[in-house]
Amino acid sequence: MSTRHILLGLLSSGPSHGYDLKRRHDERFPQARPLAYGQVYTTLQRLVRDALAEVEGTDSDGGPERTVYRATEDGERELARWAGETAPPAPFVANEIFAKVVVAILSGGDPAAYLLRQRDAHMARMRELTKVKTTPGADLATVLSADYALSHLDADLRWMTTTADRLSTLTAEVTAR
């Protein structure tokens, strides 16, 4: 996930300061990990260094003085390029679950029991996300974020079911080498 492009995207709707960008990011992407302030400021400094954003001035608004940033023309061009570019469909997703199954086989553990526990954990999370998105008044951004996570968890579950059905073959293959 490119924080730099997302912040640039938020800046493209008008000049803004770091605190405001963080708040808008967390609102816009409700199920994403909230941005840390430190990360926001570091990213803004890099955008300025690369001439994709510039300092417009300061704004105190009665409180502490804040640096206001705006996107440059180069920034707008870079943003358009990035937003239109397809994300690479990952050829191999980093798969901790598969790693644990293989390690369990190698170390004489119980991969079937592990897969059942993992399935329970996935289902529990899916129930939580379903509650989040079906809460009356949930906005569409929340529903779509939850749906994205649910689709991925569901894909994991399908993979775990298939893997559980093929554990004896996998065990033979892993232990033969």
Binding site: H122, M123, M126, R127, L129, T130, T134, L150, S151, L153, D154, L157, R158
Partner: peptide
């Protein structure tokens, strides 16, 4: 599983 996730 996505339907089952509606359950308690």
């Amino acid at each position: 599983a996505r339907v089952a996730a509606y359950a308690d």
